[in-house]
Design a protein around this nucleic acid. Structure first.
Lengths: 230, 230
DNA sequence: CCCACTATGTTAGGAGTCCGAACAATGTTG
DNA sequence: CAACATTGTTCGGACTCCTAACATAGTGGG
């Protein structure tokens, strides 16, 4: 009955991708606007953010991988940050490797660059809580898929965490369980960058995925969901 | 009961934003990888894509706004494209304005750069159709919100189209109606860049939004949906 | 008609983002 | 110890961005 649209339109995955690309565009654009004010450029700001999450410091290689750029590019950005007095290069475990750590000023600035995408957070906040949870869940799944395909480095998210127990409770609001804090939680609490994350084995991950992935719709909603798909 | 997580975690809007930012990162990174092969850089590729959607050609100012950059930057990119023989500068209506049009080679290349984000489309395709629709719907709402805030130029999407009649049918799979093709459709068919888009007046948009925004969950699913929130 | 005023696009200069290629230096392994 | 792999750097070059300062072309009021 909606065959007209299914045949006329681009596939939904394309349109979703286009939407994500539009948002990506705005994020980049806004980052540049905020750049002048803070005295750091988008890439530099993102590097600061990464270092903020890694108090012990990390190597250049890791930064490059997380930023999605080549080592030379990361080296450029880091050197600029060092010149600006926001980061210091400490010797690493190896005598060839370096350990990047934020200076106090760097920490302050990192907290500011964190605020860059707040305009987007405001937009997300206008959504209904149910929609927010669905959006987060969908993003988590997409990112997992990207990770599986090797398009993205390993993320510290629940889905790959050894403490994650998906869909073990009957409470629809909080069906999952975190064995680290030993507490139940729901889709809306899913994390993408958990400090306590501990990588699960491949088998564990696969099991967690199987338990997490399917949509848990109660009998009443089932017909609806089925009718909506195509 | 899930108070622990609500107090320990960052707000959900932040985590969603972080997820979107991660995807934005990959998109940028992949665009650069594809750049070398195609002989054009990400910005140039995006410009080609914009021109592909505007067969009559558009001005430099418009390109700049759509790309989210300043006119000089757009001028740079366009000049490079002209030098590469992918775009021509035709005189515009004004004697000061120019009209950018793709050359045949430009069209061919534009179709190729379109494929850059297909890896992301693949990831989205792994989602359940119901989730895809929810994701698209959420993105549409977020983008509308960004548009309202002036963070994004006007998009050719259903929500701002004079032909859009949200939630006028009882069919849960296709509650909306497009007065242009005179056919019902559902969330999964929502468009972000419709060629037939005609801007609606502010009042029309507001009315459409009021009718579209609320979550329409059928009675059976209602308890579930409510229970799923926090 | 002419003087602001506005709009479109350009140039100039400078910092930064990216890449690939080629290097050093340090570990690792057969 | 000789390959080999790993970490980070330097180099050259194309492109991305910005702000500021210009041209030039339409517009409106006096």
């Amino acid at each position: 009955m909606t065959a007209i649209f299914d045949s006329l339109s681009e596939p939904i995955a394309r349109r979703v991708t286009a939407g994500l690309a539009k948002i990506a565009l705005v994020l980049r654009s806004r980052a540049w606007k905020g750049a002048g004010a803070a005295g750091v450029t988008p890439t530099q700001g993102q590097a600061l953010g990464l270092l903020r999450d890694a108090p012990d410091g990390i190597g250049l290689r890791a930064i490059a991988k997380l930023l999605g750029v080549t080592p030379p590019t990361a080296s450029d950005a880091v050197n600029t940050l060092v010149a600006k007095g926001l980061v210091t290069k400490a010797p690493g475990a190896d005598r060839r490797s370096i350990n990047l750590v934020l200076t106090p000023r760097g920490e302050t600035l990192a907290d500011q660059t964190r605020e860059w995408p707040s305009f987007l957070a405001d937009a997300v906040d206008t959504l209904d809580p149910v929609e927010q949870a669905a959006l987060l869940r969908a993003l988590v799944k997409v990112i997992r898929s990207l990770q599986q395909a090797g398009d993205v480095p390993l993320q510290r998210m629940c889905l790959t965490c050894t403490f994650f127990r998906p869909n073990v409770h009957h409470d629809a609001a909080a069906p999952h369980h975190c064995a680290y804090v030993d507490a139940p939680f729901g889709d809306r609490h899913l994390r993408l960058a958990c400090p306590e994350h501990a990588p699960a084995s491949v088998e564990e991950q696969e099991r967690a995925w199987q338990a997490f992935a399917p949509l848990r719709t109660p009998p009443g909603a089932d017909a609806h969901a089925a009718g909506r798909s195509d």
